[in-house]
Write a protein that binds this DNA or RNA. Structure first.
Lengths: 220, 220
DNA sequence: TTGCAGTGAGATGTATACAATTGAAAGCTA
DNA sequence: TAGCTTTCAATTGTATACATCTCACTGCAA
């Protein structure tokens, strides 16, 4: 019982959704998944309920679970929420980060400037946001942000490919955020972070808009 | 199967925690609860897992569930998070509320001024916050706030008795928030709402601090 | 007295059988 | 043919038995 089957199934399903192997609308039947994982329905059932609570699954016909469909408006709300919470964390971080953390932030920024490989930049980008998140000194808000990020993953992961123009503008935005944090200007930090997340969303929207209609908005 | 046993058990347990009938640290044993509710362990099990995800239960000895204990610092973080999110919603509402909603807000404010009964005031207070929440036009943030409020309920419900001085200061704060919203000043709205939630927390802290040590901080 | 291994009770994790619900499709009627 | 009813299969909900894990307690040895 050291590692629970329900836990690993839950995570496997999340990974599959992230990787785009399970598209929104795809059915998630207890019996079928149980056979695939080689377990009984019980742990699968628990995993599916957790996916539902994480808003990654929803009920379809006959109360059956399907990978959650999401309308473009919902995605916009989700990104707005993410942006607001991340901005709040950044504003708190501007007031609370230690000297060591401020130095780290600068280091990561420099690494980002020196990097041209999109995959590496993506990893540096994560560290940048991670430092801010922990600098805010509020684990509840941090957990809330993680949760929301999980819900956008299915879309970001399936669609995002770093394009060099976005990479450059991201660098500029990171620099602005860092400057605001270093000067402990909470209001400016909030504004710049909010705009940064909004930019990411615009890029994603563009990509989605260019796709075939049946993929763009699976629900309709 | 119209109403699932698991659902009603989940809600009953929340209500019991809210009402202070189950104090933090109290064990939640599947078998025992199953007998009390007259069902099998299965639906109880599901309800307990959902309580855990809602952070109202945690694991104690032998992986058993107990009503979640919380240190004072955790409570402070929780209230800070609640305040930040409610402030964000208020700031958005200041920019987005319809004329009708603005009028409603004024009406509720007047009702609050005219009211001296703490129970009635508490209901009016809920409506005030409800109007702001829906005025923000973001269901994700609204749901996030609901979730956090649920987690503070156990403490607020067990401890809160309206005291007339708090009632008066609450009125003043509500008036300030309303003015800021009506003049569509998002920044001021955010600041005032944040301070409003902080005041509530201070009052709660005082009440907790006056209690016997073993009740004040159940964990230690 | 201290430390540790064995043991057993208490609790959750999982498998499986059966019950209940839902929705779609077939069939009947006007 | 349109609309209503009935039926039935698909799927989840629940009950129960068994498996597994954890930890407190006991007893022995150093």
């Amino acid at each position: 019982m050291a590692i629970r089957a329900a836990d690993s199934i839950f995570e496997t399903l999340i990974d599959a959704i992230m990787a785009g192997q399970m598209v929104p609308g795809e059915p998630l039947v207890e019996q079928t998944l149980a056979e695939q994982f080689g377990v009984s329905r019980t742990p699968v059932r628990e995993a599916l309920h957790r996916l539902e609570q994480a808003r990654l699954a929803e009920r379809g016909a006959r109360r059956a679970f399907v990978v959650r469909r999401m309308a473009p408006e919902d995605l916009a709300e989700l990104f707005e929420a993410t942006g607001e919470i991340e901005s709040t964390l950044a504003a708190l971080a501007a007031k609370r980060m230690s000297e060591i953390e401020r130095r780290k932030l600068e280091t990561v920024l420099d690494e980002g400037d020196a990097c041209d490989d999109p995959a590496t930049y993506s990893e540096i980008n994560s560290r940048f946001h991670e430092i801010i998140k922990s600098g805010a000194r509020n684990s509840i808000l941090a957990a809330t942000l993680d949760e929301l990020n999980l819900r956008t993953l299915a879309w970001r992961a399936a669609n995002f490919r770093e394009d060099s123009r976005r990479l450059e503008s991201s660098r500029v935005e990171h620099r602005g955020i860092t400057q605001a944090i270093l000067s402990q200007d909470a209001d400016t930090t909030r504004r710049k972070m909010c705009s940064h997340v909004a930019s990411s969303f615009i890029v994603l929207s563009d990509i989605l808009a260019r796709r075939a209609p049946e993929q763009r908005a699976p629900k309709f």
